[in-house]
Simulated assay, not measured.
Amino acid sequence: MAEVKLFGRWNSPYSHRVEMALKLKGVEYEYIEEDLRNKSPLLLKYNPIHKKVPVLLHNSKPIAESSVIIEYIDETWEGPSILPQDPYERAMARFWVKFIDEKCTVAMWKACSSPGEEGEKAKEEAAQLLKFVEEEIKGKKFFGGDNIGLVDFAANFIGYWFGILQEIEGLELLTKEKYPNLCEWIDGYINDSFIKDNLPDKDKMTQVFKAYAQAGYKPKI
């Protein structure tokens, strides 16, 4: 059995952030694709609480939740640091990951997937939350400074996935006029050679999300 296995989903921003962390560290791993509408017995075994991807299996020991997995990767393997070394900066990175995951991403997803009044409220909420991210990234190349780090990986839904969804849904929520600093970060992030080589194909993503929309199926990210 391979020392490291990753249970994931090809179009999941959470799976991809873990894959990018593994690749940044140069860790060899076996990738196992999951069908989230027909979850495998192994996924349910290794993540019985949340029953979702990603799950990292290292020497037969499972670790769930993408931000937890990335911290484990950073502490376990040598290579470029993903979290800052300074304790205060590490704490702030964890704060922004939590803010992005539990506030921004949730509101932005609802803005794309919820109809009527609920969707409008989500758009308003997302617009307000993104202002905080806009201010945080101001004057920086990446959230971690000059190098890609934990918060950049956590913000990959904002940086890539949401752009595709926004285009499909005809939204104008995240624009250069409203969020110039954030959009500058997005441009630098998705065009970074390392990130660019590890993002899912845009055309394939677009086709899948359009098919979901036509079928009335709103997948959970």
Rank of each mutant, 00 (worst) to 15 (best):
A2D: 13
A2L: 04
K5S: 07
F7G: 00
P13D: 04
P13S: 09
S15W: 00
R17T: 07
R17F: 11
V18T: 11
E19I: 10
G26H: 11
V27E: 10
Y31W: 04
I32A: 06
E33R: 08
E33Y: 09
D35V: 06
L36D: 10
K39T: 02
S40I: 14
K52R: 13
V55G: 02
V55C: 00
L56S: 03
L57E: 13
H58P: 03
S60V: 03
K61G: 05
P62F: 13
A64Q: 02
E71P: 00
Y72G: 06
I73L: 04
S81R: 15
P84A: 01
P84Y: 06
Q85D: 15
Y88A: 00
A91T: 06
A93R: 02
R94V: 05
K98T: 09
F99P: 01
I100D: 11
I100K: 03
C104Q: 08
C104M: 12
M108I: 14
M108V: 11
P115R: 08
G116S: 12
E118L: 14
E118S: 08
G119L: 03
E120S: 09
A127N: 00
F132W: 12
E136V: 14
K138I: 04
G139V: 07
G145R: 05
D146A: 14
D146L: 12
N147A: 12
I148D: 08
I148T: 01
G149P: 11
L150C: 07
D152W: 12
A154S: 14
N156Q: 13
N156C: 15
G159I: 00
I164N: 12
E167N: 13
E169R: 12
G170A: 13
G170F: 05
L171S: 01
L171Y: 01
L173K: 05
L174Q: 02
T175L: 07
K176E: 15
K176S: 15
E177P: 07
Y179Q: 07
L182I: 08
E184S: 11
E184F: 06
D187W: 02
G188P: 03
Y189I: 05
N191W: 04
D192V: 08
K196M: 13
K196P: 03
L199T: 06
D203C: 09
V208W: 05
K210T: 13
A213S: 11
I221E: 12
